[in-house]
Amino acid sequence: MIDLPTNTRRISGTRLLDLCRARGISSLVDPFMGVPTHLNVLKRHGIAVHGGDLLEWFVRAGEGLVVNDFTILRDNEVAAVVEMLPGRIYPTDLFRGWEGVFFSEDQCRYLGVWHANVHALRSDGQTGIAVIGLWHVLCHWLLKAHHPDEMIDIPPSELAWHHIREAQRWIADNGKRNTVRRGDFTTTLGAVRADAVYLALPGRSAAKRIDARVWMWEAWWQGDPYLNIERLYRETVFGGATNDDVSYDRAAAAVLAAAESTPYIIIQSNARDADRFERLLRERRPNTERANLDRDEIYIIGKK
């Protein structure tokens, strides 16, 4: 059984929406987007959004939830994702490395089937919806391993069906061009112009403490249960030794420098780190304000 970390960062699209509306911000870029549900919320409310991340499955999810304006999976297409198709040969042992450690034999078989079925989808939008929907199944299984008697048993295909259908309820068009890309923050910030940059900066040595539910899904997407996700971060500014204050400040300052041309920079922080980020932002933007909404939710907003 694998530990499921607590202290999940609260990334709220509606909160960002309130901050954007109060400042007339109509487009926003998030170079560390993670699961892009917040960008989907902003998109639904008419804000042009752009995201980037190093993990490919986040980007795939973004293609489903952020870039995609209208593509959905019809019932027969959902069925073709969640179940084995007759006559097709599946790599059912692809995730055997996880069997007995994190998942049951049956679950590992389904992970292999879904991996093959999702990679066979022809549209990026459909792929993204399936990726985000099936990720919820993985999260459910990992949680159920902790609480086997307190969560009901649901057949894998039924659970997958439910979550894929649930994920695609949020597809909407905002009449604007929305993008996601795989790359570090300099790639994302260099590729798009927006009214605001939103930064929920990675924590110290974030790659070493990444949630199992996140790295496992990247491993699933890549079809490699032994994937070492740390290597993706190693060459970024947050990938080296950022345990000490000086090097972490240097990494954060590099991000702020890359966002220099953007009219607004919005940093989300918490009571522990807000002073540090405010100091760093104020060095570059004297016109900086702070919204203390909660101990876990402090926004530092710098205007150019």
Partner: peptide, 26 residues
């Protein structure tokens, strides 16, 4: 106000309005 905002969020990240998940929900 924030309790009202997030009282319909679901632990598995399928709620409304933000699809917050786990202990990210107050």
């Amino acid at each position: 106000s924030d309790i009202v905002r997030w009282h319909r969020e679901h632990d598995d990240g399928t709620g409304i309005p933000d699809r917050l998940r786990w202990d990210g929900i107050p």
